[in-house]
Each structure stands twice: as C-alpha cells, then as structure tokens.
Design a protein around this nucleic acid. Structure first.
Lengths: 338, 338
DNA sequence: CTGTTAGCGCGTTCAG
DNA sequence: CTGAACGCGCTAACAG
C-alpha cells in the first residue's frame, strides 16, 4: 500500500487538491457535504498528511528537542516524562539527544538543531561545557529555549531549577541539628551552577552555625560510579571524623552507601547521609535515605509549559520567566537522622 | 539573524543554487576551488540545511521513532541509551513516545507515525495491547519495525528479547536449589509474551523438580507500585509458607523488598527473592538482590542495528532476524540465596 | 463554496 | 564543470 497523498484523494473525488486540504483541516469555507465525503475517503484510505511537507510550508516543525546529559538517571527520566506529556498535550513531537556530559557532543547536537528541525529546545547542559556559542546560534535564530536543572547562567532565557541554595543550606543544617560535626560534601561538578549553589548553601549553613568549612571534606564527583565509590571510601578513611555526608546528586549518595557498607560504617549511627534524590530509591535503601526530593516531573512539565507559551505565541522567552521550584526535605522514619 | 539557505549562498557567490547544493554535498562534478569557496561561506554564515525540505525531496526523514511504555524505568532508559547511540552513529534522529502502557495511546501514536515521519520504528508494546492493526499500517507502508523486550508475537518482523523462558526456568531452579519449597511468582502481565514465557519457565522448573505449580502463588502485578506492595503483603500473609519469590520485573522485586520489611520477613532467611533487574539497583539493596540481569543497553543497540540495516539497505525486515540475547544470573554475595 | 497558482528549500534530472 | 527547470506534498493568497 502506497502512502496516499492529497493529490490522490483529490483525483478520486474529482476535487482540487486545495479543497481536499481545506476539507481535512475543517475549514469554514467548505460545504458540510464535501467535508464529509473527503474525510470519509481519507479515513478509508488511511490518509496521513506528510509532516515534512507541512513543516516546510508552514515553517513549523511541531517538534521540540530535548538535550540532556543522560537518560539512565532518575531525575532526567522523570523530567522527560513531564516533558513528553506536555508536548503531547500540545500535539508536539519530542526529539531526544544525549550528550553523555560531553561538551563537544553537546555543541555538535545543538549546532545541528539550529536548522529549523525543532521549534524549541529544552536543555540541561553538560558539566564541562564552557563555551556556549552553540546555544547562541539557536538564540540568533530566535528558537525558544528553556534550560532546566543544569542551567547555563550566562544565557538570557528562562531557567527552571530547584531552590538549590536553600536546599543545600537546609540539608547541611539538618545534619548539624542531628549532631554531625564533620560534614563532607560530595560535589557534582564545580562548573555547574547547581553545584555551586548547593555548595554555597553548605558553606553558609556551616558558618551560620559557627563552623569553618573544611576544604578537605569536599569531594569532586566523577562520571564513573565505581570510581566515586572508591573516592568516598578514601575520603572516609582519610577523615575518620566524618559523621555526615551531604551528596549533591543521587548517584553520589548511592556510592556513599556502598562505601559505608564496604568500610563497615553504620548508617546513620556512624555516618548520616542526606542527598538530592528520587523518593522511590531513597525508600528502597536500608536504612532509607533522608532526601531532598526534587520535583523532577514537575520541572519537566514547567520547563515545557514555558517553552510552549513562547512557541505558540511566537514570542521570545524572557529570563524573567525563570523559576525555582521548591524541593522537599523528606526525613525518613528509621533513618534516625531525626 | 535569518536562517540562511542555499539561495542566499548562491546569490552571495554569483553561483546557481544547484552548484552550491552540489558543492556542499561534495559532488565530484564541482571544481575544488568553488567547493572551497562555497564551503567557506557556508561555514561563515552558519548555514544549516533545512532538514524538512531535504526530507521532502529525498523521501527520507533521517529519523526513527521509539515507542515504549515508560522512560522512568531502568530497563527502558538503558535501552534508549543504546538506541540513541546507534542512531547517532548512523546520523539519525530519535523521536520518543511514551504509551504509559495504554493500548489506545499506543494506537494513536503508531497510527500517526504512519505518515513518513520516521524511517523506522522501535517498539516495546503496551501490556494491554490486544489489537495490533496500528502496527499493520506501518508495515503496509513498508516502514521497518523492530520490537524489543515487550514484543508482539503475531507480527512478522524482527524481535529482540532476552531468553525469557530459560531465565524463568533458571531463576526458579535457583530458588529450588537454595531450598525454597513455596515459590511465588510475580507476573508482569498475562498478555505480554515475555510474561508468559517467564511464567512457563517457572512452571516447567517446578514440575521438573517434582513440584506442582500452585495457582494461589501467582500474583498479577499492576501499574501502581504502592498497590503492588499491598498485593505482595497480602500474598505473603495469606500464604505464610512462601519462602521464595520470583519477580518478573524490577519494580515487583522492589515492592517485595518493601513488603517483606513491612511484615518483618527477613531476606533471605525467611524469603529469598530473585528478579529480572538492573545490576546497580540490585547491588544497592540490602541484602543485594539476586538478579537476572538483562543486557538492556545491548538490546537497545541490537534492535537499532537491525533496524538500520533495513533502513539503509531499503530492505524489509525478516522475522528470522530476531534474537534472544542472553541474560546473566548474578548471585550476590551476602544474599545467601546461594 | 471551490479551483488556480505560487511557493516553502532542497536534490536531481537534463542541457550546455 | 555549471545553470535552468522541475517537483517532493502541502498550505495560502487570490480569483471567481
């Protein structure tokens, strides 16, 4: 069965192509009878309009792009869930691209997207990204863009994050109130603003409580989980006084759990752990992980919503549309941190 | 900055559009000097070919579709990883669609895809899907299609799965050898062939060891995790003799862990658990989960590879290209199932 | 209410 | 080696 197009429908019905086109888009200037006839035949033959012809003509792709570091990650998969849902509500398609946290790949991808392939872009930047000219190309083309979570501060566009500074502050305060005196911080990346903000919250909370941040208690995470576990183990061994860990991302909390088990450090009696993390995983751990729960799904939805407002109204996105969604500190029962 | 097109490049250089087009595609019939000039200007102006014009003309979208039940799932996110990677290697784009395990949504999506939007489709069907005519439409259009994991048996096309029957058999045998006498099976869906095969393996292993499968030990999972936990708890309470659980998917294993903890059943002393699951999660649990590890990433890659062979050679996919990838039974140290 | 015409931007004849 | 012309399938302006 050949793909059927407007021309074939038109011939079959002795109508012009444009009439058929209008009938299918339910135009007001077509009689009810021909509309019915056209739509009936279209249904019968299983007509599906060629999206690329349509895109070319209307200069709209009905597609958005999502550029993220990885998908095998609770936060991002939940976010995609929200994004896909909003896209569907708006009758849009979703192209997905993984950077594997590599700045060069990210540049290639975004560069390529400056071709009209997408009407808008949602992005969470790679940790190592320094040069942001590729995003500039998109902006020059007036393609709306919203950053979420791993945002790019130097860009004048909307950004959806969690209240990273406050969360970092609260997390640290929580550990302090639970009696911790030597709190390590596991940083995701010194380049990412979310890392900086969480770190700043950690610093300020320590100082507000009369402690001086100890740089030897700061660990820079890598992209290799096994390596992270080793690093945490070394950190714990070199600083036996550590009685609290604030991990900036879920995977670093996981490595901490494994490291503690490996070293026979009891959680939470010897070491209390708190982390940004998905609730389900946190609950599954034994003892459950005290969590700063990010509303990942909602962040995806919100970022997409802002993007679609711009796309559909054909208006540039203002940086003032940025938002910080609130995360929730979830103290788990048996964690005994409380 | 306006999107620059061939026409503009041509005017700027006093060349014809077709020459420019050929120069950019590095055609042999263009002089080296003009090629250089054209490519230089294109680079300077940041020319990106309009993909939709190109698609329309060449009748190729350079895009594949991926239809899956959900993305917030270890198996699927790893699979997407593999798929995206192979797509990139072939310079293809990936459209993603989530069915939320809903047959009607799946039908709408796939139906819509029968429009030339994608050159090929990778799909893992929704549990409740009964009517497969939507996939038929794609096949009628000769759009290559590969099913993976949750495959659709009644379709004559390639399918990538794990060795579900054997794995189910081995898992059950493993529990039997560890001394279990009352093994429950948590089924993902009675409609999905993977569920059926795993169940069959379970049955056959029981019988081969002289046991009669007890239908009251069979639990049908739902899509609601909390509900699943409740169901498992009820199952354990109604059948106090249960000393082993074989879960057909990771999320059911998670619910089992939580249920056991809730009821104070010790793992593995009172109840031994084995499940299809991602290794990372399995290791994180305490005690670690004995796992049938599916090569999710490899399955994604393999499915995509087969798809691209068909797309690039413009040949239909034969059902004989189906494969069963081997899963690995991973006995975790302290699980003591061993 | 319907048909005719003219592109959207690109690739591919066919001529020269 | 280069240019002119056509059409992929669809939508939109303009006629009638």
């Amino acid at each position: 069965m050949n793909p059927v197009n407007l021309k074939q429908l038109a011939q079959e019905l002795n109508l012009s192509v444009s009439t058929v086109s209008r009938a299918l888009s339910d135009s007001y200037e077509i009689s009810a009878t021909t509309k019915a006839k056209v739509q009936e035949l279209a249904r019968q033959l299983g007509y599906e309009p060629n999206p690329y012809a349509s895109s070319l003509r209307r200069q709209k792709s009905k597609t958005i792009g999502v550029v993220i570091p990885e998908v095998a990650n609770n936060f991002f998969s939940l976010a995609i869930n929200g994004i896909e849902e909003v896209a569907r509500e708006n009758d849009y398609h979703v192209l997905i691209y993984l950077t594997h946290d590599d700045a060069a790949q990210e540049a290639t991808i975004v560069q390529h997207l400056a071709s009209g392939r997408v009407d808008g872009l949602l992005a969470s930047v790679a940790g190592a990204t320094q040069d942001f000219t590729h995003f500039g190309k998109l902006q020059a083309r007036r393609t709306p863009m919203v950053f979420f979570d791993r945002v790019c501060e130097e860009f004048a566009t909307a950004k959806i994050t969690t209240d990273d500074y406050q969360s970092g502050y609260q997390a640290t305060q929580h550990l302090l109130e639970a009696g911790c005196r030597h709190i390590a911080h596991l940083l995701i990346s010194d380049r990412l603003s979310i890392g900086q903000k969480r770190l700043q919250g950690y610093h300020d909370a320590l100082q507000a409580h009369g402690f001086t941040p100890d740089p030897t208690l700061l660990l820079h995470g890598t992209s290799d989980k096994d390596r992270n576990q080793t690093l945490v183990q070394e950190l714990l061994q070199q600083n036996p006084a550590i009685d609290g860990i604030f991990a900036s991302v879920e995977t670093l909390a996981m490595s901490s759990y494994l490291a503690c088990r490996q070293l026979g450090r009891r959680i939470p009696e010897d070491v209390k752990i708190i982390s940004f993390s998905n609730l389900e995983i946190a609950d599954l751990l034994d003892p459950p992980l005290t969590t700063i729960a990010q509303p990942a799904y909602e962040m995806g939805r919100e970022a997409a919503r802002i993007l679609f407002k711009a796309i559909l109204k054909n208006r540039p996105i203002l940086p003032t549309q940025s938002q910080e969604l609130k995360s929730k500190l979830i103290k788990r029962r048996s964690t005994a941190v409380l």
